[in-house]
């Protein structure tokens, strides 16, 4: 199997006042295609920084990151935006839906930035919402949806671009345990369908459901268990 994500000696330092914070300090790892990997660690461990780097929302201080075989080092803002649009599907803890747009428009948004025509955007978004079981909620705004429904809209939005990697950052963190369970089940079935999923969480129990668990502590890989 080839790697969906490859990190090679990645560091990320921040300057805070006079001190340098080593958020990530020499991380090298490979995540294979079609795997379901959990990145675990307490808050402040550096796992969020790792997620931002994998998602091309941030750039490393040193080291290389390859996404779906493409080396992202030295890419400019436009190229990074292109990688985010084509290769990554984000699912965030607080759903990150645009409140003024309908579920349908939220889901089709990534295709807008790709230059897809409005009819095709609409058709694809309908298809994705149907896939997450929200066919009858397409015209609703986020405020009219429950937490679980919002997260399913967000998953539909992540899937619409057919990304190489689905990057989920505490996707159940804002949900009760029952709806959290439903969302996890969706990820499991996506995994079975052959999607590459990276789950970032502080929850050991949730992480143990995944096929691989990478522990992060103090900016370094603490353990890596399959």
């Amino acid at each position: 199997m080839s790697e969906a994500i490859l990190l090679d000696g990645v560091t990320r330092f921040y300057e805070v006042g006079d001190t340098t914070v080593h958020a990530l300090d020499g991380v090298s790892l490979a995540i294979e295609e079609k795997s379901f990997t959990a990145i675990v660690g307490p808050s402040g461990s550096g796992k969020s920084t790792l997620m931002a780097l994998i998602g091309c929302l941030d750039v490393p201080t040193s080291g290389r990151i390859l996404i779906d075989g493409e080396d992202t080092s030295g890419m400019d803002d436009d190229e990074l935006a292109y990688i985010r649009n084509r290769k990554i599907g984000f699912v965030f803890q607080h759903f990150s839906l645009l409140p003024k747009l309908s579920a349908l428009d939220n889901v089709s948004l990534p295709l807008l930035y790709r230059g897809t025509g409005s009819r095709e955007r609409r058709e694809k978004a309908e298809e994705m919402l149907e896939r997450v079981g929200l066919k009858d909620r397409m015209k609703h705004r986020p405020s009219e949806l429950s937490g679980g429904q919002k997260q399913r809209v967000a998953i539909a939005r992540a899937l619409i671009t057919e990304p190489a990697i689905i990057l989920a950052d505490e996707p159940t963190g804002a949900l009760d345990s029952a709806t959290g369970r439903e969302v996890m089940d969706i990820f499991h079935s996506l995994h079975r369908e052959g999607h590459t999923i990276v789950l970032v969480t502080h929850d050991q129990k949730l992480a143990s459901e995944c096929s691989r668990m990478i522990g992060i502590k103090d900016g370094r890989v603490e353990y890596d268990a399959s």
Binding site: A81, R84, F90, Y113, R157
Partner: peptide, 16 residues
């Protein structure tokens, strides 16, 4: 700002 962040995460370029 949050909206801009979401749009950027979804692949909006600075120009867009």
């Amino acid at each position: 700002t949050g909206e801009i962040g979401i749009r950027k995460a979804l692949g909006a370029t600075p120009k867009q």
